[in-house]
Computed example of a mutant assay.
Amino acid sequence: MIRRSLDNYGEDHVAAISSEVSARIDAATFGTGSWDEVPAALSSAFPGSWGGVYNMNFPENRLNFMSLQNMEPAFVKSFADHFAYVNPWAAYWASLKTTTIAASEDVYPARSIAKSEFYNDWLLPQNTEAAAGMKLVGERGEAVHVLLHFPLSQSGVYDKAGLEILHRIRGNFERSVNLARLLRTDVETVVADAALVERSRYAALVVSGDRLLRESNLMAEQLFSSGQGVAVRNGRCYLVDKDADARFGATLEKLAAGTPTRASRIAFRTAAGAWQVSVAAIPLPRPSPASILSLLPPRRMVLVLVVDLGLQRAEAADLASLSTLFGLTPSEIAFCKRLLLGESVTDAAEHLGITEGTARTRLKAILQKTSTSRQGQLMLLLSKAT
Protein backbone atom coordinates (compact mmCIF):
# COMPACT_ATOMS: atom_id res chain seq x y z
CA MET A 1 0.00 0.00 0.00
CA ILE A 2 1.53 3.33 -1.08
CA ARG A 3 0.94 6.40 1.07
CA ARG A 4 1.86 9.93 0.06
CA SER A 5 4.13 11.86 2.33
CA LEU A 6 2.59 14.83 4.11
CA ASP A 7 5.43 16.85 2.59
CA ASN A 8 3.67 16.57 -0.78
CA TYR A 9 0.96 18.83 0.64
CA GLY A 10 3.05 21.40 2.40
CA GLU A 11 2.13 25.06 2.69
CA ASP A 12 3.30 26.08 -0.79
CA HIS A 13 1.42 23.24 -2.48
CA VAL A 14 -1.76 23.80 -0.50
CA ALA A 15 -1.60 27.52 -1.19
CA ALA A 16 -1.16 26.90 -4.93
CA ILE A 17 -4.09 24.49 -5.07
CA SER A 18 -6.30 26.87 -3.06
CA SER A 19 -5.40 29.76 -5.35
CA GLU A 20 -6.19 27.73 -8.46
CA VAL A 21 -9.57 26.51 -7.17
CA SER A 22 -10.49 30.01 -5.93
CA ALA A 23 -9.71 31.44 -9.36
CA ARG A 24 -11.97 28.82 -10.96
CA ILE A 25 -14.78 29.71 -8.54
CA ASP A 26 -14.49 33.42 -9.34
CA ALA A 27 -14.37 32.73 -13.10
CA ALA A 28 -17.53 30.61 -12.90
CA THR A 29 -19.24 33.27 -10.77
CA PHE A 30 -18.71 36.00 -13.33
CA GLY A 31 -19.31 33.92 -16.45
CA THR A 32 -15.75 33.64 -17.71
CA GLY A 33 -15.47 29.97 -16.76
CA SER A 34 -17.56 26.88 -16.11
CA TRP A 35 -18.57 25.36 -12.80
CA ASP A 36 -17.18 22.08 -14.13
CA GLU A 37 -13.71 23.58 -13.82
CA VAL A 38 -14.05 23.96 -10.03
CA PRO A 39 -14.34 20.28 -9.05
CA ALA A 40 -11.99 19.39 -11.91
CA ALA A 41 -9.26 21.61 -10.44
CA LEU A 42 -9.87 20.18 -6.99
CA SER A 43 -9.72 16.54 -8.07
CA SER A 44 -6.67 17.02 -10.30
CA ALA A 45 -4.68 18.06 -7.24
CA PHE A 46 -5.44 14.74 -5.52
CA PRO A 47 -4.62 11.71 -7.71
CA GLY A 48 -7.23 8.94 -7.51
CA SER A 49 -9.97 11.31 -6.35
CA TRP A 50 -13.11 12.80 -7.86
CA GLY A 51 -14.46 16.26 -7.17
CA GLY A 52 -18.04 17.43 -7.08
CA VAL A 53 -20.21 20.50 -6.72
CA TYR A 54 -23.94 20.01 -6.45
CA ASN A 55 -27.08 21.69 -5.13
CA MET A 56 -29.46 19.41 -3.24
CA ASN A 57 -32.80 20.26 -1.69
CA PHE A 58 -33.15 17.60 1.00
CA PRO A 59 -36.76 18.29 2.17
CA GLU A 60 -38.02 18.21 -1.43
CA ASN A 61 -35.63 15.40 -2.41
CA ARG A 62 -34.60 17.33 -5.52
CA LEU A 63 -31.21 17.64 -7.19
CA ASN A 64 -31.01 21.16 -8.62
CA PHE A 65 -27.48 21.23 -9.99
CA MET A 66 -24.62 18.75 -10.31
CA SER A 67 -21.06 18.68 -11.61
CA LEU A 68 -19.00 15.56 -10.86
CA GLN A 69 -15.53 15.49 -12.38
CA ASN A 70 -12.89 12.77 -12.87
CA MET A 71 -15.62 10.14 -12.68
CA GLU A 72 -16.82 7.52 -15.16
CA PRO A 73 -19.96 8.74 -17.01
CA ALA A 74 -21.97 5.72 -15.85
CA PHE A 75 -21.40 6.66 -12.21
CA VAL A 76 -22.27 10.29 -12.91
CA LYS A 77 -25.56 9.25 -14.46
CA SER A 78 -26.44 6.78 -11.71
CA PHE A 79 -25.81 9.46 -9.08
CA ALA A 80 -28.18 11.89 -10.80
CA ASP A 81 -30.80 9.21 -11.45
CA HIS A 82 -30.73 7.38 -8.12
CA PHE A 83 -27.84 7.51 -5.67
CA ALA A 84 -28.14 11.22 -4.83
CA TYR A 85 -31.49 10.35 -3.27
CA VAL A 86 -30.33 7.35 -1.21
CA ASN A 87 -27.09 8.85 0.09
CA PRO A 88 -26.92 7.92 3.81
CA TRP A 89 -24.67 10.93 4.47
CA ALA A 90 -27.60 13.19 3.55
CA ALA A 91 -28.96 12.98 7.10
CA TYR A 92 -25.73 14.46 8.45
CA TRP A 93 -25.59 17.27 5.89
CA ALA A 94 -29.30 18.07 6.31
CA SER A 95 -28.84 18.52 10.06
CA LEU A 96 -26.35 21.37 9.57
CA LYS A 97 -27.71 24.91 9.71
CA THR A 98 -24.51 26.82 8.93
CA THR A 99 -21.60 26.47 6.53
CA THR A 100 -19.67 23.38 7.64
CA ILE A 101 -16.42 21.77 6.50
CA ALA A 102 -15.67 18.22 7.61
CA ALA A 103 -13.91 14.96 6.77
CA SER A 104 -16.17 11.94 6.54
CA GLU A 105 -13.84 9.76 8.61
CA ASP A 106 -14.09 12.30 11.44
CA VAL A 107 -17.87 12.83 11.51
CA TYR A 108 -19.49 9.93 9.64
CA PRO A 109 -16.96 7.15 8.83
CA ALA A 110 -17.43 4.98 5.76
CA ARG A 111 -17.70 1.89 7.97
CA SER A 112 -20.95 3.27 9.42
CA ILE A 113 -22.62 3.05 5.99
CA ALA A 114 -20.92 -0.16 4.87
CA LYS A 115 -24.25 -2.03 4.59
CA SER A 116 -25.93 0.61 2.44
CA GLU A 117 -26.71 0.39 -1.26
CA PHE A 118 -24.95 3.72 -1.75
CA TYR A 119 -21.71 2.37 -0.31
CA ASN A 120 -21.68 -1.08 -1.94
CA ASP A 121 -23.05 -0.23 -5.38
CA TRP A 122 -21.68 3.26 -5.93
CA LEU A 123 -18.81 4.29 -3.66
CA LEU A 124 -16.97 1.01 -3.28
CA PRO A 125 -16.73 0.24 -7.04
CA GLN A 126 -15.01 3.61 -7.48
CA ASN A 127 -12.64 3.05 -4.54
CA THR A 128 -13.46 6.51 -3.19
CA GLU A 129 -15.05 5.74 0.17
CA ALA A 130 -13.49 8.65 2.11
CA ALA A 131 -14.23 12.33 1.60
CA ALA A 132 -13.67 15.90 2.67
CA GLY A 133 -16.60 18.23 2.05
CA MET A 134 -18.18 21.61 2.59
CA LYS A 135 -21.85 22.45 2.83
CA LEU A 136 -23.03 26.00 2.17
CA VAL A 137 -26.53 26.57 3.45
CA GLY A 138 -28.99 27.84 0.86
CA GLU A 139 -32.67 28.61 1.32
CA ARG A 140 -35.65 26.46 2.35
CA GLY A 141 -33.77 23.22 2.70
CA GLU A 142 -31.48 23.84 -0.26
CA ALA A 143 -27.71 23.43 0.08
CA VAL A 144 -24.63 23.66 -2.12
CA HIS A 145 -22.02 20.96 -1.54
CA VAL A 146 -18.35 20.91 -2.49
CA LEU A 147 -16.89 17.41 -2.23
CA LEU A 148 -13.57 15.67 -2.68
CA HIS A 149 -13.82 11.84 -2.59
CA PHE A 150 -10.75 9.61 -2.50
CA PRO A 151 -9.58 6.11 -1.52
CA LEU A 152 -9.91 5.30 2.15
CA SER A 153 -6.22 4.36 2.16
CA GLN A 154 -5.35 8.00 1.37
CA SER A 155 -7.51 9.61 4.04
CA GLY A 156 -4.59 10.09 6.41
CA VAL A 157 -2.98 12.48 3.91
CA TYR A 158 -5.88 13.78 1.84
CA ASP A 159 -8.14 14.62 4.81
CA LYS A 160 -5.76 17.20 6.25
CA ALA A 161 -4.85 18.85 2.94
CA GLY A 162 -8.41 18.71 1.60
CA LEU A 163 -9.89 20.32 4.71
CA GLU A 164 -7.30 23.10 4.66
CA ILE A 165 -8.05 23.87 1.01
CA LEU A 166 -11.81 23.91 1.62
CA HIS A 167 -11.31 26.37 4.48
CA ARG A 168 -9.28 28.64 2.20
CA ILE A 169 -11.80 28.63 -0.66
CA ARG A 170 -14.80 29.00 1.64
CA GLY A 171 -14.97 32.79 1.30
CA ASN A 172 -14.99 32.64 -2.51
CA PHE A 173 -17.77 30.06 -2.53
CA GLU A 174 -19.90 31.89 0.03
CA ARG A 175 -19.66 35.09 -2.01
CA SER A 176 -20.70 33.18 -5.12
CA VAL A 177 -23.69 31.59 -3.40
CA ASN A 178 -24.80 34.94 -1.94
CA LEU A 179 -24.55 36.62 -5.33
CA ALA A 180 -26.42 33.77 -7.00
CA ARG A 181 -29.15 34.04 -4.37
CA LEU A 182 -29.61 37.75 -5.05
CA LEU A 183 -29.66 37.28 -8.82
CA ARG A 184 -32.10 34.40 -8.54
CA THR A 185 -34.46 36.50 -6.42
CA ASP A 186 -34.36 39.23 -9.07
CA VAL A 187 -35.15 36.73 -11.85
CA GLU A 188 -38.00 35.18 -9.87
CA THR A 189 -39.48 38.60 -9.14
CA VAL A 190 -39.39 39.59 -12.81
CA VAL A 191 -41.00 36.31 -13.84
CA ALA A 192 -43.70 36.60 -11.18
CA ASP A 193 -44.47 40.21 -12.12
CA ALA A 194 -44.71 39.27 -15.80
CA ALA A 195 -47.16 36.48 -14.98
CA LEU A 196 -49.52 39.04 -13.41
CA VAL A 197 -49.36 41.66 -16.17
CA GLU A 198 -52.31 40.39 -18.23
CA ARG A 199 -54.38 39.45 -15.19
CA SER A 200 -55.63 42.65 -13.61
CA ARG A 201 -59.36 41.93 -13.85
CA TYR A 202 -59.51 39.22 -11.19
CA ALA A 203 -57.46 38.08 -8.22
CA ALA A 204 -54.11 36.73 -9.40
CA LEU A 205 -51.18 35.64 -7.30
CA VAL A 206 -47.89 33.76 -7.65
CA VAL A 207 -46.85 31.17 -5.08
CA SER A 208 -44.09 28.62 -4.65
CA GLY A 209 -44.69 24.92 -4.20
CA ASP A 210 -44.80 25.31 -0.42
CA ARG A 211 -47.62 27.90 -0.69
CA LEU A 212 -45.33 30.86 -0.03
CA LEU A 213 -46.83 34.02 -1.54
CA ARG A 214 -44.38 35.63 -3.97
CA GLU A 215 -46.45 38.30 -5.74
CA SER A 216 -50.10 39.35 -5.92
CA ASN A 217 -52.19 41.95 -7.72
CA LEU A 218 -54.55 44.47 -6.12
CA MET A 219 -57.60 42.25 -6.56
CA ALA A 220 -55.85 39.41 -4.75
CA GLU A 221 -54.83 41.67 -1.87
CA GLN A 222 -58.44 42.80 -1.53
CA LEU A 223 -59.53 39.17 -1.52
CA PHE A 224 -57.05 38.35 1.25
CA SER A 225 -58.40 41.23 3.33
CA SER A 226 -61.99 40.05 2.90
CA GLY A 227 -61.20 36.59 4.26
CA GLN A 228 -63.30 35.02 1.51
CA GLY A 229 -62.07 32.35 -0.87
CA VAL A 230 -58.34 32.59 -0.08
CA ALA A 231 -56.54 33.33 3.17
CA VAL A 232 -52.90 34.19 3.85
CA ARG A 233 -51.33 32.98 7.09
CA ASN A 234 -47.66 33.46 7.92
CA GLY A 235 -47.02 34.45 4.31
CA ARG A 236 -48.59 31.29 2.85
CA CYS A 237 -51.82 30.88 0.90
CA TYR A 238 -54.71 28.62 1.80
CA LEU A 239 -58.17 28.06 0.37
CA VAL A 240 -60.90 28.53 2.97
CA ASP A 241 -62.53 25.19 2.11
CA LYS A 242 -60.65 22.28 3.74
CA ASP A 243 -61.13 19.70 0.96
CA ALA A 244 -60.38 22.21 -1.79
CA ASP A 245 -57.29 23.37 0.10
CA ALA A 246 -55.96 19.80 0.31
CA ARG A 247 -56.26 19.47 -3.48
CA PHE A 248 -54.73 22.92 -3.87
CA GLY A 249 -51.66 22.01 -1.77
CA ALA A 250 -51.11 18.71 -3.58
CA THR A 251 -51.37 20.41 -6.98
CA LEU A 252 -48.91 23.14 -6.02
CA GLU A 253 -46.35 20.55 -4.92
CA LYS A 254 -46.63 18.66 -8.20
CA LEU A 255 -46.44 21.76 -10.39
CA ALA A 256 -43.48 23.17 -8.47
CA ALA A 257 -41.68 19.83 -8.70
CA GLY A 258 -42.32 19.58 -12.45
CA THR A 259 -44.50 16.49 -11.93
CA PRO A 260 -47.26 16.07 -14.54
CA THR A 261 -50.76 16.61 -13.18
CA ARG A 262 -54.14 16.93 -14.82
CA ALA A 263 -55.43 19.21 -12.07
CA SER A 264 -55.77 22.79 -13.31
CA ARG A 265 -58.99 24.06 -11.69
CA ILE A 266 -60.48 23.69 -8.24
CA ALA A 267 -64.07 24.78 -7.58
CA PHE A 268 -65.69 25.04 -4.16
CA ARG A 269 -68.51 26.76 -2.31
CA THR A 270 -68.54 28.72 0.93
CA ALA A 271 -71.24 30.57 2.84
CA ALA A 272 -70.16 33.68 0.95
CA GLY A 273 -70.49 32.17 -2.52
CA ALA A 274 -68.83 29.97 -5.12
CA TRP A 275 -65.20 30.11 -6.23
CA GLN A 276 -63.00 28.75 -8.98
CA VAL A 277 -59.22 28.55 -8.57
CA SER A 278 -57.08 27.97 -11.66
CA VAL A 279 -53.40 27.02 -11.34
CA ALA A 280 -50.57 26.80 -13.87
CA ALA A 281 -46.80 26.38 -13.65
CA ILE A 282 -44.92 29.49 -14.77
CA PRO A 283 -42.20 28.83 -17.37
CA LEU A 284 -38.77 29.82 -16.08
CA PRO A 285 -35.69 30.86 -18.04
CA ARG A 286 -33.16 28.04 -18.26
CA PRO A 287 -29.73 29.21 -17.04
CA SER A 288 -26.81 28.49 -19.33
CA PRO A 289 -24.09 26.20 -17.93
CA ALA A 290 -21.77 29.22 -17.74
CA SER A 291 -24.24 31.28 -15.69
CA ILE A 292 -23.97 31.68 -11.94
CA LEU A 293 -27.70 30.90 -11.86
CA SER A 294 -26.93 27.33 -12.87
CA LEU A 295 -25.56 26.88 -9.34
CA LEU A 296 -28.79 28.16 -7.76
CA PRO A 297 -31.37 27.96 -10.55
CA PRO A 298 -34.64 29.93 -10.24
CA ARG A 299 -37.26 27.96 -8.37
CA ARG A 300 -40.50 26.92 -10.02
CA MET A 301 -43.51 29.06 -9.22
CA VAL A 302 -47.24 28.69 -9.81
CA LEU A 303 -49.73 31.24 -11.10
CA VAL A 304 -53.04 31.13 -9.22
CA LEU A 305 -56.17 32.83 -10.58
CA VAL A 306 -59.15 33.11 -8.22
CA VAL A 307 -62.56 33.87 -9.68
CA ASP A 308 -65.66 34.72 -7.70
CA LEU A 309 -68.25 32.87 -9.80
CA GLY A 310 -71.02 35.17 -8.65
CA LEU A 311 -69.01 38.20 -9.76
CA GLN A 312 -68.12 36.34 -12.95
CA ARG A 313 -71.76 36.09 -13.95
CA ALA A 314 -72.26 39.79 -13.27
CA GLU A 315 -69.18 40.97 -15.15
CA ALA A 316 -69.36 38.65 -18.14
CA ALA A 317 -72.04 40.88 -19.58
CA ASP A 318 -73.62 40.39 -22.97
CA LEU A 319 -71.33 42.96 -24.60
CA ALA A 320 -73.81 43.01 -27.46
CA SER A 321 -73.21 46.74 -27.84
CA LEU A 322 -69.71 46.01 -29.10
CA SER A 323 -71.20 44.62 -32.29
CA THR A 324 -72.97 47.92 -33.00
CA LEU A 325 -70.22 50.21 -31.75
CA PHE A 326 -67.20 48.53 -33.33
CA GLY A 327 -68.51 45.87 -35.68
CA LEU A 328 -67.14 42.97 -33.63
CA THR A 329 -68.25 39.51 -34.71
CA PRO A 330 -69.84 37.02 -32.28
CA SER A 331 -66.55 35.09 -32.08
CA GLU A 332 -64.64 38.30 -31.32
CA ILE A 333 -67.16 39.22 -28.61
CA ALA A 334 -66.77 35.74 -27.10
CA PHE A 335 -63.01 36.29 -27.08
CA CYS A 336 -63.47 39.64 -25.31
CA LYS A 337 -65.57 37.94 -22.65
CA ARG A 338 -62.75 35.51 -21.89
CA LEU A 339 -60.31 38.42 -21.52
CA LEU A 340 -62.75 40.13 -19.16
CA LEU A 341 -62.68 37.03 -16.97
CA GLY A 342 -58.99 37.66 -16.40
CA GLU A 343 -57.73 35.03 -18.80
CA SER A 344 -54.58 35.35 -20.86
CA VAL A 345 -54.62 34.99 -24.64
CA THR A 346 -53.42 31.40 -24.24
CA ASP A 347 -56.12 30.59 -21.68
CA ALA A 348 -58.81 32.16 -23.85
CA ALA A 349 -57.67 30.12 -26.85
CA GLU A 350 -57.91 26.91 -24.80
CA HIS A 351 -61.43 27.69 -23.57
CA LEU A 352 -62.66 28.68 -27.03
CA GLY A 353 -61.10 25.66 -28.73
CA ILE A 354 -58.86 27.63 -31.06
CA THR A 355 -55.09 27.72 -31.55
CA GLU A 356 -53.01 30.35 -29.85
CA GLY A 357 -52.06 31.72 -33.25
CA THR A 358 -55.73 32.16 -34.17
CA ALA A 359 -56.34 33.81 -30.81
CA ARG A 360 -53.58 36.35 -31.37
CA THR A 361 -54.85 37.08 -34.86
CA ARG A 362 -58.31 37.61 -33.37
CA LEU A 363 -56.90 39.95 -30.72
CA LYS A 364 -55.11 41.96 -33.41
CA ALA A 365 -58.37 42.34 -35.35
CA ILE A 366 -60.20 43.47 -32.20
CA LEU A 367 -57.51 46.05 -31.41
CA GLN A 368 -57.82 47.44 -34.93
CA LYS A 369 -61.62 47.63 -34.81
CA THR A 370 -61.67 49.29 -31.39
CA SER A 371 -58.81 51.69 -32.24
CA THR A 372 -56.79 50.45 -29.27
CA SER A 373 -53.09 49.69 -29.51
CA ARG A 374 -52.52 47.53 -26.46
CA GLN A 375 -54.37 44.86 -24.56
CA GLY A 376 -54.46 47.06 -21.46
CA GLN A 377 -56.33 49.78 -23.39
CA LEU A 378 -58.76 47.17 -24.71
CA MET A 379 -59.45 45.89 -21.19
CA LEU A 380 -60.24 49.41 -20.01
CA LEU A 381 -62.63 49.87 -22.92
CA LEU A 382 -64.33 46.54 -22.24
CA SER A 383 -64.72 47.25 -18.53
CA LYS A 384 -66.59 50.45 -19.38
CA ALA A 385 -68.87 48.55 -21.75
CA THR A 386 -70.09 46.10 -19.05
Rank of each mutant, 00 (worst) to 15 (best):
A194H: 08
G209L: 02
E60G: 00
G353N: 04
A28W: 03
L303P: 13
F75N: 10
A365D: 07
P297A: 08
A23T: 10
K364Q: 10
L325Q: 12
S19M: 11
R262Y: 11
L378T: 01
G249Q: 11
A103R: 14
T251Q: 03
P297D: 02
Q222E: 13
L152C: 03
D241F: 04
W50G: 01
R3G: 08
G342Q: 00
L293Q: 09
L147M: 11
S5H: 08
L213E: 01
M1T: 11
A349L: 02
E72A: 15
R286K: 14
G342Y: 01
V345I: 13
K384Q: 14
L96I: 07
T370Y: 10
F75A: 15
D308F: 03
H82Y: 12
V306D: 03
T100D: 03
S116R: 06
S288Y: 05
T372Q: 14
T128L: 03
R262V: 11
T361K: 14
A90C: 05
K337L: 06
L6M: 10
G48E: 02
N120I: 12
D186Q: 12
V14G: 10
I266Q: 00
L295E: 05
I165D: 13
L378M: 00
L163Y: 03
G141V: 06
S331H: 05
W275V: 11
W35K: 08
R170F: 00
Y9C: 09
R338D: 02
E139Y: 12
A334W: 04
V190I: 13
V232C: 06
G162V: 00
G138Y: 07
L182C: 05
S323M: 07
V190Q: 15
A161K: 07
S44P: 04
W275F: 15
A257H: 12
M219C: 10
